[in-house]
Each structure stands twice: as structure tokens, then as C-alpha cells.
């Protein structure tokens, strides 16, 4: 009797999850399959693809045939674009961590009644579209923007700072945009922290640094890792922020992929680059799973 009940339950489970599964298969796996297929085809003359199988796109990802003497070399332009994306994403992750940890700590240590209000404040930026938030940042840091006007007004600087169109501008923008994604999981982790552990370690003459490194960080670690992944993954594919704040002078991977689908008219290369990006993200996720399972077995 009980087995048929279990079967019934399993069937219900499948039925209930069917809409989500169907959506996943069609909306995620379907397009991905198309991208994967296109990466092995020949670019059409003005757009799209021609159905001729070739590995040329993959060759183009890593190597370039010199346009003038036909010699083949590593595509250092492509590599430096990928490297810039990885570097800026790592820096964004570190910056959001440095700004996010005190914020998360502050919220987690408020009285229970206030916490909801503070968390609510953190989520407010999500109410607005990413593009609009990025333009808002631009209005703050641009040449005749708020920041420069304020600094000039109080006499701290003589000439306006040129922050726009630099990597700094991109970092400011991405840190601002992705900060909530770091704060929320860290808050959840700190929230679980038993404050008595800290009191106990102080009673046992631990220094403040020791308390941070031996008590707080190990307990908060899952939150830090989850937050880092949540920040790193969208950062590396960022398109709007580098385009608007970085001034388009130096591409990130997202912009490079767009070039192939737009003016470059090379969809297969764009598709191959997208898959490489997916690979980088997967490596980051595998790293996450590894690290988090290790911390579980430690605990």
C-alpha cells in the first residue's frame, strides 16, 4: 500500500515540475543547442549562417591569420579581451566583498525588527532597469556630473576628474550593480552565526583578527562563495556597463560577441565565443561546488 502511495507521490512530483522542466528544456537547452550548432557552420554573406560544417570559428577564437602576410599566430586581441573580462570580474568580486561584508554584518546584527527594513533597502535598486541604473552612475561620475560638481564646489579639486571611459568607471558601475548579490547571501550566512561563539573566543583571549579569521570567516564562507559566484558570473558576461561607462574603447567579452553578431557579420565566431564564455562560467561553478562541498565535510 505504501509503495503505491510513494509511486503516486513521485508521479505527482513529476507532474508538478513538468511545466518548469518543459520550460527549461525549451528555453534553455533549445537555444543553447542552436548556439552550439551555429559555432560549427560557415558565416553567411550579410548575416546568419550557411549550412556548411567547418571548424573555422573555433580556429578563429584562438588563432588569427595575419590579414597582411597570412602568417598564423595566437589571437592576442581575443586573449586580451578575455583576460580583461576575467580581471575586471575578479576585481568586481573582491570589491563587492570588501564593501558587502561590513554591510551584511551591519544588517545581521540589527534587532530582528529592523532587519527586514534594511534588507528591503538593499533590494530597492532591483526595482529599476539595469540600463537606467548604469546611466544614473554615468550622471554621477561624468565630466560635468554630480561628483565633479560637488568636489569642485568644496574646492577639493581644481579641474574635473575624468573617471568616465576608464576601467575605474566600469569597476564602479559593476560593483554598484552587483553589490546586492554579494550582500544577501553573506547576510544569510552571518545570520546563522551564533554570537556566543564570538563572546566565547574573546573570553579565551582571542585577538580581534583571530576572531575574524578563525570564527567569523569560516562560518560565513558558504555565503562568501555563493556571493562571489553570483557576482562573478554576470560580471564576466557584462555588456551594458562596459559599453556605457567604459566608453567602448576597450571591449569585454560581451561586447566582442555582440560585434560578431552585428557589424562583424560572423555569427559562428560569435557562437563559439559564447560557448567559451559558458565554459569559463562552468569552471567557476565547478570550483564553487568543490569548495562548498569541502567546507561541508569540514564542518
Amino acid at each position: 500500500m505504501s509503495t503505491s502511495l510513494e509511486k503516486q507521490r513521485a508521479r505527482d512530483g513529476w507532474l508538478l515540475s513538468a511545466p518548469a522542466l518543459v520550460l527549461l528544456v525549451f528555453a534553455a537547452a533549445g537555444p543553447l543547442l542552436i548556439v552550439a550548432t551555429y559555432a560549427f557552420l560557415t558565416p553567411g554573406d550579410y548575416s546568419g549562417v550557411v549550412w556548411d560544417f567547418t571548424l573555422k570559428a573555433w580556429f578563429q577564437v584562438l588563432f588569427e591569420r595575419d590579414i597582411f602576410d597570412d602568417s598564423i599566430s595566437m589571437a592576442d586581441a581575443h586573449l586580451s579581451i578575455f583576460w580583461r573580462s576575467i580581471r575586471l570580474s575578479l576585481l568586481t568580486t573582491i570589491l563587492t566583498f570588501l564593501f558587502g561584508l561590513p554591510t551584511a554584518w551591519f544588517i545581521a546584527t540589527r534587532p530582528a525588527k529592523q532587519r527586514a527594513a534594511w534588507l528591503f533597502l538593499i533590494t530597492i535598486p532591483f526595482w529599476t532597469n539595469l540600463l537606467i541604473r548604469t546611466f544614473a552612475i554615468m550622471e554621477v561620475i561624468r565630466y560635468d556630473g554630480l561628483l565633479n560638481k560637488a568636489l569642485l564646489g568644496i574646492g577639493l579639486i581644481e579641474t574635473p576628474l575624468r573617471i568616465m571611459y576608464t576601467d575605474t568607471a566600469v569597476l564602479i558601475g559593476m560593483t554598484y550593480v552587483y553589490l546586492p548579490l554579494m550582500v544577501l547571501p553573506m547576510f544569510a550566512a552571518i545570520d546563522r552565526l551564533d554570537i556566543r561563539l564570538i563572546e566565547a573566543s574573546y573570553d579565551l583571549y582571542a585577538t580581534r583578527l583571530k576572531v575574524l579569521t578563525k570564527i567569523i570567516l569560516p562560518i560565513v564562507r558558504p555565503g562568501i562563495i555563493a556571493g562571489s559566484i553570483l557576482v562573478f558570473v554576470p560580471s564576466i558576461g557584462a555588456y551594458v556597463t562596459p559599453r556605457v561607462l567604459g566608453g567602448g574603447k576597450k571591449m569585454m567579452v560581451g561586447n566582442f560577441i555582440e560585434l560578431q553578431f552585428g557589424a562583424g557579420r560572423n555569427w559562428p565566431l560569435g557562437a563559439a565565443l559564447s560557448l567559451i564564455l559558458l565554459l569559463i562560467v562552468s569552471v567557476a561553478l565547478i570550483f564553487y561546488v568543490r569548495v562548498s562541498t569541502r567546507s561541508d565535510s569540514d564542518g
Partner: peptide, 16 residues
């Protein structure tokens, strides 16, 4: 297309 590819390569080098 052949000329376009050269333009794209130059453009990429310009924005790398």
C-alpha cells in the same frame, strides 16, 4: 565578406 572580415579584424585589434 572577405573585405568585411579584414575590417572586423582591424576593428577588434583597435578595441582589444
Amino acid at each position: 565578406k572577405a573585405v568585411q572580415d579584414i575590417h572586423t579584424a582591424i576593428w577588434t585589434e583597435l578595441q582589444k
